[in-house]
Design a protein around this nucleic acid. Structure first.
Length: 296
DNA sequence: AGACCAACCTGCTGGC
DNA sequence: TGCCAGCAGGTTGGTC
């Protein structure tokens, strides 16, 4: 469940069903799922067993739950990224194991267990050190996330700083939107949606973006992700689900992504799909034109 | 230093 | 029916 709205849906589920519970047992079924853990699966399990998981937090597409926060231990957190196909499910222990079950956490209360299920294993879990900015920082940030920018739904996101960095980048606008060190949480779907709403071509050089255009783009990214979050995120199939295995409804509200050959909702021109960086870009060839000042 | 993209995986779909 | 190419919501390490 890849992009910000889908990850936020999962964060809320973890906060409701997992936070406050004590880990009884950790089972790592596939070593690739803990490949970022220095010390491997044994270390991962040792750093969680017997510990209490705190409130679920998120930055961009990353999730984490502080470990033993209530007990005054402010040093580590269970960190997760869902990659392309990862799921975090809160599942009754009686439910048979999923085909791609990678990690299982059992709890001391004997209730529903937490399962990390990931078909392609691009996602991962790890226990990471929490870094604190100073006495005023009550929450901290996992060390591995030092290079991840705040996401646009974060109240502390720096709009002015984003505009400046965007203009300074020697790149094109969709690359910039997907650059998690510039702005996090935006992926291929919401990048295409924000660009469509802004009438911007994905290959437009960032240096040609005026401040009002950049502001419009940012506002549209916020709007489309907020709207998606309100209906549980985007899901085309059962691969992208919340902690209870349920899909969101935003796929029916997409204006560009996945609509190749279908009419643009603004002008009726068929939406086009272009191969782009080993993936796809969906856009309206009439509403979203490459500006003339550069040949592409 | 900064930009780029191949590689990491599994499964599904559509064309031949 | 079978096979194979192409595609999928992301990130990174290595290269230039």
């Amino acid at each position: 469940m890849p992009e910000l709205p889908e990850v936020e849906v999962v964060r809320r589920g973890l906060d409701r069903w997992v936070s406050g519970r004590t880990v009884a047992e950790v089972e790592v079924c596939h070593p690739r799922a803990v490949r970022r853990q220095t010390g491997g699966g044994l270390d991962f399990a040792a750093r969680l067993t017997g510990r209490v998981l705190g409130p679920a937090r998120r930055r961009g597409k990353y999730l984490w739950l502080p470990v033993d926060e209530a007990a005054g231990d402010r040093r580590s957190a269970l960190l997760g990224h869902l990659g392309m196909s990862g799921q975090l499910l809160v599942q009754d222990p009686a439910v048979p194991d999923e085909t791609h079950l990678r990690i299982r956490l059992r709890f001391t209360d004997g209730g529903r267990e937490l399962r990390f299920v990931d078909q392609r294993t691009f996602g991962h879990l790890a226990v990471d050190d929490l870094l604190f900015d100073g006495p005023g920082d009550a929450q901290g940030l996992p060390a591995a996330l030092a290079h991840i920018a705040r996401d646009p739904l974060d109240p502390l996101f720096d709009d002015a700083g984003f505009f400046t960095a965007l203009r300074a980048k020697r790149t094109t606008v969709k690359r910039a939107l997907l650059d998690q060190s510039l702005i996090s949480g935006v992926g291929n779907i919401y990048a295409d949606e924000a660009l469509w709403r802004s009438k911007l071509h994905y290959d437009r050089p960032t240096e040609t973006l005026t401040r009002p255009l950049a502001a419009t783009l940012l506002a549209n990214a916020r709007e489309v992700m907020t709207a998606a979050l309100a209906v549980g995120g985007t899901s085309f199939d059962s691969l992208y689900v919340n902690v209870n295995g349920e899909s969101g409804y935003f796929s029916r509200s997409l204006d560009a992504y996945g609509r190749e050959g279908e009419p643009c909702y603004r002008c009726g021109t068929p939406i086009r799909r272009a191969a782009w960086m080993n993936r796809s870009s969906y856009f309206c060839p009439r509403c979203q034109r490459v500006p003339r000042q550069r040949a592409y």
